[in-house]
Nucleic acid binder design. Structure first.
Lengths: 164, 164
DNA sequence: GCGGTCATGTAAGTGGTTACATGATTAG
DNA sequence: CTAATCATGTAACCACTTACATGACCGC
């Protein structure tokens, strides 16, 4: 596929848990090609290349995918703000938590859509062996979104008591 | 407080949802002082300064704390790996999910510790008006950790069926 | 006096985004 | 023919981490 197509695929298929920008993709493709992990072949279109995995690239990829996940340093803007709630007051905190709740609810709907979309594709015999993996990532998103909503409701209730 | 103390406070008090490194803190303090948001006064100790919020800094801080949280681009190494589970196989996925479950369980214990620690301080009459906010952030951590555990157990069960 | 902690800062490098510049191809 | 989309790449910049260099102070 082309670099452009890579980005489209990331946005459309990994969108809810991964993102990459063009400024990242094109240099990465050049480097991967230089390292022999992917192969560049000119496409029919002018000034355009198609990339495909080499055998060593495939090995490298599965190695990376099997490697343990390194923890990223925590950085939650929402929690930071709530931690200093004493300084900003209850109403500001209510706003922030309500926003987070809304965002989680919206995500939940989005995941429901992905579920029906995927189920329909599977019913048509497409991507059947990929579907369980797809489902695991959707399920993770749903669980955390639901947890966020429960937490938000509890916290909003607690703040309502504080205020009165 | 000193820059060093700022970092200690961030590590010890915001540790579970925020982090900063020295390389970040010292330049930031210099810039904040140049902008008039904090004031640098030499401390008794040689080559050491104490910083304190100015009036404009206090205003700026509460403004920032009240500002809406901007969403950071999603990037979950775990989900990325699981999404390509077809390529890496069930056992690799089981390892990854088990690790995530363990990490969440460990976090949960940590949060339980923070709860008892904080409750003890409040019982001794310390930080009583800060405690509810502290609790909100702990609660958020607990909810997401529990959600992770439930998701992990469900997913491991699903993978066990796939394998057989 | 010596090791640990307190303290400040810089340098090099990484990983990422946004914006810009450019042009080919296709759909209407 | 013209607007949208496909396509590639670079430049500038930002946020952040790690490692390094330096030294004061304190307790034993």
């Amino acid at each position: 596929m082309t670099g452009y197509a890579v980005r489209e695929a990331i946005r459309d298929q990994l969108g809810h848990f991964w993102s990459e920008s063009f400024g990242q993709i094109y240099p990465a493709l050049s480097k991967l090609a230089a390292d022999g992990f992917i192969e560049r072949t000119p496409s029919e279109r002018a000034n355009s290349s198609l990339f495909s995995l080499t055998a060593s690239g495939e090995r490298r990829l599965t190695d990376l995918l099997r490697s343990p996940v390194e923890a990223s340093p925590p950085r939650s803007g929402l929690m930071l703000r709530l931690f200093f709630g004493r300084a900003t007051g209850v109403p500001a905190a209510v706003d922030l938590i309500s926003d987070a709740r809304d965002a989680a609810a919206a995500q939940l709907e989005l995941f429901a859509g992905l579920r029906t979309l995927g189920a329909a594709e599977v019913a048509r015999g497409l991507d059947a062996d990929h579907w369980p993996w797809w489902l695991i990532t959707i399920s993770a998103g749903e669980h955390t979104a639901r947890a966020t909503i429960v937490w938000a409701d509890e916290s909003l209730a607690a703040l309502a008591l504080m205020d009165g």
